[in-house]
Design a protein around this nucleic acid. Sequence first.
DNA 1: ATTCCACAGGAAACAGTGGTCC
DNA 2: GGACCACTGTTTCCTGTGGAAT
Length: 401
Amino acid sequence: MSTDPIDKLLDAAESGNRLIKNRDILHFTYIPEIIQHRNEELEQVTHSLLPILRQSRPSNLLVYGKPGTGKTLVVKKVILKIQDRVQNSDFPIKLIYTNSKEETTLYGLLVSFGRQLGLDEKDLPSTGLAISEVFKRLLNNIGQTKANVIFIIDEIDYLAQLVSKTGKDILYQLTRANERLDSGSLTIVGISNDLTFKERLDPRVISSLGEEEIVFPNYSMEQLKKILEERIKIAFMPKTVEDPALNLCAAMAGREHGDARRAIDLIRVAGEIAERKQADKVTETHVREASQKIEENKETTALQSYPLHEKLVILAVMKASGSSTGEIYSAYKELCKSIRQKELTQRRITQMLSEIELSGIITGRLVHQGIHGRTKKYKLTISPDMVKETFKNDLTLEDIV
DNA sequence: ATTCCACAGGAAACAGTGGTCC
DNA sequence: GGACCACTGTTTCCTGTGGAAT
């Protein structure tokens, strides 16, 4: 055996010292045979979509639940089953899934809808058209093919936001699309992380979209444990995950709000760390390391993905830590001057600051200073070294960090 | 009791890009 | 080739505000 680290790794790979035998199972898109603790919800979803099999229009459905409570999983599962059933009959059902978060614009969402309906670039160009025109073409297609379409909109709260910004009442039109259809039908299944999002909707939309509602409760620690056990059984080699490690995963994810996705992420990363260290079991220590690594990764990728001026603002906050918007703005202007960039207005910078604050990299505190006015004081929440480290390999920034 | 600071943050308008349609 | 469209990132303009100072 060599002591060279690369050799060591290669040796390990060769000797097959692996803890994880099936990585895919630890990925969030994997749909397990049995979805633990979600029987009731499965039944409810199936029930409300059932009418489509009897060729009548099912009611629109709204599904709520925090992230990692298995909402999407359950809906997808039901839909796969329905698709299975219908496959051999000539009864046209089309299932369409979109995620509002992945489509950045309303237009994009509708186009993605159209693509899955079978409209290509020629029938439905991905830019240039008026939204009402896109909508008309979609409905035309449904009418012509006489299809019964179930349109699943994941993270519908995002869509609601987009809609409110542009002032178009697409959600309303979608929910009422059936009134404009002579043949075929359109059913909406909305999935939302935010239980309060309904309050922000147009009441007309609520009445038709919220015909049926299903709320997914958070998982308890015990349930999380069960879910993990189930997945570990098929994803890991037998007896390679210690009980304390499992418990810790469940506890850490349970502390958030019963986020199963996070629990599974944790155990996956912990497994990978253990493999790399050539341990023969996944221990508590690995889980803790995994948790830390996930956090750090989140931060560095967030930092890297910011556009130039946001990065400058972060640097300005770092340089003038704990200071007011005004001071940060002057620090920012200095930075702009030194790299010969045109500076943006203060209004824009305040906006950026609150955007960055939302991501958690900085925190702001509103302070009233009497005659010295009111301002918001910002602080970095992550270590300055990390910022420097991340920005160092940015060509335009390397001189000023 | 008033005044007045130093911004926060909403609303609207605008410029620029990349597209369709006729 | 001109009218029109969606969308993003920005600027311009604006109203609002808690409390020290007067």
